[in-house]
């Protein structure tokens, strides 16, 4: 699969189908057993430590529950990468941090600790931290998990707007079909580690494949069985089969 520049791409699939693994491969946290991941013309798993770290500076990743540093304030969280990777003077960092926080609508929270934020707010702060250094590739690991409908729309909208504002490429791993179909440019469907379907949101909505239909419309019956494979039900319950 390819992620062209400037696009917002969703990767969907059931839990455990390899979506997060894919992100880890892009980030270089895992070494692929087969194939390769190429970002900005470089093959990730062939980079050395320094090269990988240089590559990661151009990436941003939003973790499932934000993964804000709990021992730092909101301000320090957003300023973290600026302080670690740049020699910017503190006044400039101050302005940048407030700009990033303003972009996600949380400029007023900069003195709070992450534990004082609601789930949706924490996600938005994490988003501000992710884009702190204006990355060219932003990865989102389940950005919609566990959010109320309002926060959900807000976060979805932010992802779209930040992508366009930064001219970055975004990869969203999610199983929230409706929300992501609203904002993305292109969708990949994964099952058991392979791509089963791809297309624009409209193509996905009208897809004729059973598997995609079941997923998009949340049907119980379909190629994905309700029952985990097990032994014979009657035998498991120690029932004698009358003959």
């Amino acid at each position: 699969m390819t992620f062209p520049k400037g696009k917002l791409i969703a990767i969907m699939g059931l839990s455990g189908c390899g979506k997060t693994t894919l992100l880890r491969h892009i980030g270089g946290a895992l070494t692929p057993t087969k194939g390769y991941v190429k970002v900005d013309g470089q093959i990730i798993h062939e980079l050395d430590q320094a090269g990988l770290y240089a590559m990661r500076r151009k990436m941003g990743m939003l973790f499932q529950f934000g993964a804000l540093f709990t021992d730092m304030s909101v301000y320090d969280n957003v300023a973290f990468q600026m302080r670690e990777h740049t020699d910017l003077p503190e006044e400039l960092i101050h302005d940048l941090v407030l700009m990033k926080l303003h972009a996600v609508g949380l400029r007023g929270t900069h003195n709070l600790m992450p534990s004082e934020l609601s789930g949706g707010m924490a996600r938005r702060v994490a988003l501000a931290r992710t884009v702190a250094l204006d990355p060219m590739l932003i990865m989102y690991d389940e950005p919609f998990a566990g959010l109320d409908p309002i926060s959900l729309t807000v976060v979805g909208d932010l992802i779209r707007r930040l992508n366009d504002a930064l001219g970055a490429t975004s990869v969203v791993v999610t199983h929230d079909v409706q929300e992501s179909l609203k904002i993305v440019d292109y969708v990949y469907f994964m099952a058991n580690g392979v791509i089963v379907e791809e297309g624009t949101p409209d193509e996905i909505r009208n897809s004729q494949k059973d598997w995609v239909r079941q997923f998009v419309h949340g049907e119980i019956e379909g190629p994905v069985p309700f029952h985990y494979p097990g032994g014979d039900y009657r035998q498991d319950l120690n029932l004698k089969v009358k003959s």
């Binding site: 980030g27 946290a29 770290y53 590559m55 500076r57 990743m61 709990t70 670690e84």
Partner: peptide, 14 residues
């Protein structure tokens, strides 16, 4: 457990 360590790694900070 809260992925803060992974997040830091992804931010290219050891």
């Amino acid at each position: 457990a809260t992925e803060q360590v992974s997040a830091m790694e992804m931010m290219a900070v050891n």
